[in-house]
């Protein structure tokens, strides 16, 4: 290799085209942030659809939202927040070089993630039983609260559930990818790859996980908390 200007510090993790570890770390971090920026726009398309339809069909959205389980939604939010804590602590453990603690915290994160997906799966199954899945078998026989004669248009309720499944489905897909990423991170931690000098993968994976958490932080009030007081 005609590579005469190699940097002074040469660790095995330093890829050849970077001058030093700091440049490499900054590049990776900026890359992940940019990716999260694209993710905002990815979910943004659905948020835009949600905004338009919620303004157009507010009553239907409110009644349909009330058929979702508030306790389950709240618990799932708490589960994700716990997973974010374990991620943040695992990054800290990696910074301090506590290799065993890193593994424990990463495994905990993975378990919280799986718990979230399990609860979500249970919720989806409920919707299936209640015939709230959009399509030919969809049925929605609800009325405005306090006005039993004012039936809700089931077609518009279907729009709410279409958005519900699209948004929670895309979020769940991101969770599944996150679980995959964390499985790899656990494997890397197991092999002792992370040191106080090099733990960029934990940091980057952590950023991704926190972002998926933030998406849920918005999905929770938007989907579960419409007009709950009636």
């Amino acid at each position: 290799m005609s590579d005469s200007s190699v940097a002074v510090e040469h660790t095995p993790e330093l890829r050849h085209h970077f001058a030093d570890m700091e440049q490499q770390r900054n590049a990776a971090s900026l890359g992940m942030w940019l990716f999260l920026g694209t993710e905002i726009m990815f979910f943004g398309g659905m948020f835009c659809a949600y905004l338009i339809y919620r303004l157009a069909y507010y009553n239907e959205f409110a009644v349909a939202s009330r058929t979702l389980s508030l306790p389950i939604g709240t618990i799932n939010t708490a589960v994700l927040i716990c997973s974010s804590l374990t991620v943040a602590l695992s990054v800290r453990a990696a910074q301090l070089g506590k290799q065993k603690l890193v593994i424990v915290l990463l495994v905990l994160t993975l378990l919280f993630g799986l718990a979230f997906l399990g609860i979500k799966g249970y919720e989806w199954r409920e919707k299936f039983v209640e015939h709230h899945i959009p399509g030919s078998s969809f049925s929605f026989d609800e009325a405005m609260p306090g006005h039993p004669e004012a039936k809700i248009d089931p077609r518009h309720a279907q729009i709410f559930f279409s958005l519900y499944f699209a948004m929670t489905g895309m979020h769940a897909l991101h969770m599944i990818i996150g679980v995959g990423i964390f499985a790899v991170l656990i494997l890397m931690a197991w092999r002792g790859r992370f040191t106080p000098e090099y733990h960029t993968p934990v940091e980057i994976g952590g950023l991704y996980w926190h972002f998926v958490d933030i998406v849920w932080i918005y999905l929770f009030p938007l989907l579960y908390l419409i007009d709950r007081h009636k």
């Binding site: 959009p134 518009h156 279409s162």
Partner: peptide, 14 residues
């Protein structure tokens, strides 16, 4: 594929 109705005018979609 899954019969979601986000753009379907029959269901009030735009």
């Amino acid at each position: 594929a899954f019969n979601l109705g986000i753009f379907d005018p029959n269901r009030g979609g735009d």
